[in-house]
């Protein structure tokens, strides 16, 4: 299936054509949206990590980022709101050789999907989770998300958000993720590098890609257009690799710390499972639940 990208002569071919569903273009994302950049970084990382695309399954949930699965030419699943990690867990456990990627948004993964996020991290299911954080529910028109900074406006916080946002890297680390990094979609090269590293890692890896919604978040909060926001992140991002994740809170228009924060080893779910399996096999039949006796 894989075609080598033709670089000569045919200029009009998209460099990532073999990894994108060109028959679905144009995509639905608005101008100034960073999700496309995150997708580009991901496809580039897939090539850099030298992974056979035929072995990769990508799962998305609902929302703007939830549409990613529909544009990437891999085995791709667009599932229900908040459940891509659970769906992907099924794939990984049933088919351990598959490389599983969950690509979804902050509302999907952190709000309704929060439970699956922490549990998959705890189990250390071998998957890469890319969370594009746009600070808001964009698909439904700009409601407050668990990542909306304090006092920022959204349609369901018309008087300013009253809940502090999640610090996603801290939550990921405290629930057991083995690889945690954060970039903005402005850091396309570093984001690609992190995604490459994470793809090569065994275990639950989380890469947060910050890309505030240029449609709702910036408009409701009067932050200018896409270029203004890019400028803001250009000027206000500080790169601190290895920073303690507890210091990574994001405020309203405050400095954002990016970098790779966690890179550790823990046995993955499949490894633990296999170990258990070999123990059971050597110990003979598991006694419990084997009540039915032969007549």
């Amino acid at each position: 299936m894989m075609e080598t990208p033709k670089t000569d002569e045919k200029q009009e071919i998209h460099p990532m054509e073999n990894l994108l569903r060109m028959d679905r273009m144009p995509h639905i994302w608005c101008p100034t949206c960073g999700i496309g950049l995150a997708v580009t970084a991901f496809t580039a990382a897939l090539e850099k990590a030298n992974i056979d695309p035929n072995t990769v399954s990508i799962v998305s949930g609902i929302g703007c980022t939830g549409r990613v699965a529909g544009y990437v030419k891999l085995d791709s699943f667009h599932t229900t709101h908040g459940r891509p990690i659970a769906f992907a867990t099924g794939i990984k456990v049933a088919s351990p050789k598959t490389k599983v990627v969950v690509f979804s948004g902050d509302g999907d993964l952190m709000a309704i999907g929060g439970n699956h996020f922490i549990h998959a991290a705890r189990r250390n299911i071998d998957m890469l989770v890319v969370c594009v954080n746009n600070f808001i529910y964009a698909m439904t028109g700009g409601q407050v998300a668990p990542t909306t900074p304090l006092a920022a406006y959204a349609t369901t916080s018309p008087y300013g958000c009253v809940e502090p946002p999640f610090n996603i890297p801290y939550l990921a680390e405290s629930s057991g993720a083995v690889y945690v990094a954060r970039w903005t979609t402005l850091h396309i090269r570093r984001l690609t590098n992190s995604l490459t590293e994470a793809l090569q890692k065994t275990g639950f890896s989380v890469v947060e890609a910050i890309s505030p919604c240029g449609m709702y978040y910036s408009r409701i909060n009067r932050l200018g257009d896409g270029l203004d926001m890019m400028r803001f992140y250009h000027d206000n991002v500080e790169i601190r690799h290895g920073e303690d994740t507890k210091n990574l809170d994001i405020g309203f228009q405050t400095k954002i710390i990016c970098g790779k924060f966690v890179d550790r080893e823990r046995p993955s779910y499949n490894e633990r499972y296999n170990q258990w399996l070999s123990e059971v096999k050597t110990a003979g039949r598991h006694s419990k639940g084997q009540k039915g006796s032969k007549k």
Binding site: I118, R122, R123, N124, P164, F166, N167, Y170, L171, E173, S174, S175, G176, T245, K246, R266, Y269, R272, Y273, Q275, W276
Partner: peptide, 17 residues
């Protein structure tokens, strides 16, 4: 399940606030 690790609940709670 038998072969899983439990949460570190105080840490999880603390990290969320």
């Amino acid at each position: 399940s038998t072969f899983e690790e439990p949460f570190n609940f105080p840490h999880l709670g603390n990290s969320c606030g």
